[in-house]
Write a protein that binds this DNA or RNA. Structure first.
Lengths: 233, 233, 233, 233
DNA sequence: GATGAATGAGAATTCATTCAT
DNA sequence: GATGAATGAATTCTCATTCAT
């Protein structure tokens, strides 16, 4: 049987207040240490509770982490919707999405990094909760591209998923150095670059490869076909 | 009770052989379990050595992991250079790089996944070693883009780094589901899509659709011929 | 996250009602989980009170458990006395005791099992309270055997305690499989077997009950059959 | 990465020696404290190893416990077979079995007690290992009874299982007080009593077998009538 | 009288790394 | 050079009980 012990001064707070205190402390610690190196004891101390109290409100460390991430997502998502309504034009709207994502990374790189790691790790638990939020998060981008195609501003025949992967993948890779704590970047500038690249593509604009290039290509094709014919049975 | 490890017959193998046995075992275990869950004891058992022996050849677990990754990269890099020499044309060469990357992911998703996680995690030690290899790995892509710009096939004023980030980021995102063990993808098909998107961009092409369409057709033809040649006996 | 317990409507119930609610909830939980795995919070929830309230009525978890067991015993004991008065003859009375015990086990194996464990564990506190009840519970059996010896139906020179231990020990062992949730048994059949064995012993019968006893038995049978005939439709 | 720390003096022993040291220490601690209150740290200290070393040889606390019990059983079983060969006659052999069991309890009551608790608790793990040993342990008794029936010394028509349950149940109940640390008992005396009771039964021995059969019939009749009366409306 | 937030000591388990043999 | 026994620090999670509100 557990013996009663002298206790430290007990401060009673409302459930809501305690939960938010713990979440805030946890956010900090996870941000600074990452999931594995974050200690419950550390979080407890910052939240001014004993470790056991955390378990009154959260099932376990993982649960707490997921809640922190969810909370963070919710903040972002509401922000998106609010701001997006004031922007029109496919290019503008797309740029906003990219810029917002870049700005988020810029504002809280440490937490973003943890998030990318976790969402990628894909443990079953994550799938359900955070995954769905991530889907919601990127859905807006898909919608904008879709509308762009409908209005004729964007060309048809594109895989929407691929466009999304390209945009978010590009942002993620472009910001890895910063996420790792090296260097800096300017969300505005990078957003412009990405929009330009993703809309315009790599190829020399106008119409087509230069006519000269086309001719060279034709010649190559001709000789290749010859080679193939010789090889064919 | 934990089984006593039957005292092995002591084989004296050459240092090279021992190292490669351990590396092979380690590759398997890291692939299956990931870095954290991989046990030195497990690796030792599969390599038919005792734990202590591993420390004769490798400084520590991390060092062993780095070596494994390096080894894997070297295999890929040499493959690249060998094959790339036989391919001409910016589009073709770019497509090959993308296709090769996709194919690598397709062939060994588990190891790729560990790799992405680690490269992202960015502990300083890892950074230096694996990072440099990664740089080499992607350098070829940068070179191709650069040449394309020089020949005028690709438009100038692009950030080469950003192009690279877009390509690799896109591949990585596009294949996450597969890396997580869900679904499948066709490297050939996805490579076509990515090349198309990254070269052509999202926007509806500028002026003459007809010429653009012709050019696109030519490019597709060229790619097809290239593939035929590679597959031909 | 752990669900916040919705603030209950505060009902003011009589002390008796509260206590019996808690006892009932506790009985269920102890039955299902066993002492150690039973949670005060679980009991509180089922009783629709908060944990603290339980401590207003019970000193601690152990005390609550003891009360539950006592309560259960009391129910059984009163039942015994009521029914035993209608039964005459050493064999019949003995058989009833055994049958009743078997039937109790059959009816509520889970609680019986906890009980056996606890009575056996013998922490001092438990000893006093539950032990005394157990003594009362088995005393009736001792009395019957004693009477049997007095009337000459049972042979003298027996250790009454040993007879009791044999009967209850036999029942307990015979029913362990069932208590563990494996298989089933028929109280009627097993009671017959046990009575037969404990009365007749293992040895090939030299002889038989005294003739006087047989005569008495015949008389009882005759009157019983008369009674039955009167009751028959 | 784990930092190397100054170590205490390391004594290297053979696997066998270490295992037996740990087992011995564990046996003591489990005996004194019982399973739950036994601490791994305590066992480690007595075995002069650090806690971690125990986990090199045993999967977990439960595994260690099971091994301790198994080891103990093995000692008893070999003893049985050795001694039983020198004893003839059903009564003598049966008495030996009972006496041996009583003596075992008498010699190491604390460990016996833990054992009874565990075998009764019937967690799946236990079932397989300890259960089988228990079966072997009691099998000898069943065999003796069976032989007695074959030779005509014991009456037929008995449930062997029930006989076994009666014997072991009786011993267990008879010795509970001692197991709990209260009082004492004399294995010789109690063995005599139990053999007498279980062989001779409670009933006063009669004379003529024919009459005995009649009496048994009468008793069964009486029981049947009793039941009818209870069930009658 | 009821509530339920807060307590806090504890204990099992893991495994990379070392180094006596 | 190989072996594998031994190390030991570090961390999560539990839950009966208390007591401020």
């Amino acid at each position: 049987m557990r013996e009663p012990i002298v206790r430290r001064q007990v401060f009673r707070l409302s459930r809501e207040r305690r939960v938010s205190d713990i979440m805030e402390a946890a956010t900090q610690v996870f941000r600074e240490k990452g999931y594995d190196d974050a200690l419950i004891s550390d979080i407890a101390e910052r939240a001014s509770v004993v470790e056991g109290s955390i378990y009154r409100y959260f099932d376990n460390k993982r649960d707490l982490f997921i809640k922190v991430i969810e909370n963070w997502y919710h903040g972002m998502l509401s922000d998106y919707d609010r701001q997006l309504t004031g922007i029109s034009g496919t290019r503008n709207r797309l740029r906003f999405m990219i810029w917002r994502h870049l700005a988020t990374v810029h504002e809280d790189p440490a937490l973003c990094r943890q998030m990318f790691q976790i969402v990628r790790s894909g443990s079953e638990y994550t799938d359900t909760a955070v995954f769905e939020l991530n889907r919601q998060y990127t859905r807006r981008t898909l919608d904008i591209v879709h509308e762009g195609i409908v209005t004729g501003e964007l060309r048809a025949g594109l895989s929407l998923r691929l466009v999304r992967d390209m945009i978010y993948g590009c942002v993620e890779h472009r910001t890895w150095a910063y996420l790792r704590g090296e260097g800096d970047f300017d969300p505005d500038h990078v957003a412009d670059q990405i929009v330009d690249l993703v809309l315009g593509g790599l190829q020399t604009p106008g119409d087509s490869p230069a006519l000269g290039a086309q001719a060279a290509m034709l010649q190559r094709l001709e000789s290749a076909v010859e080679r193939l014919e010789r090889k064919a049975p």
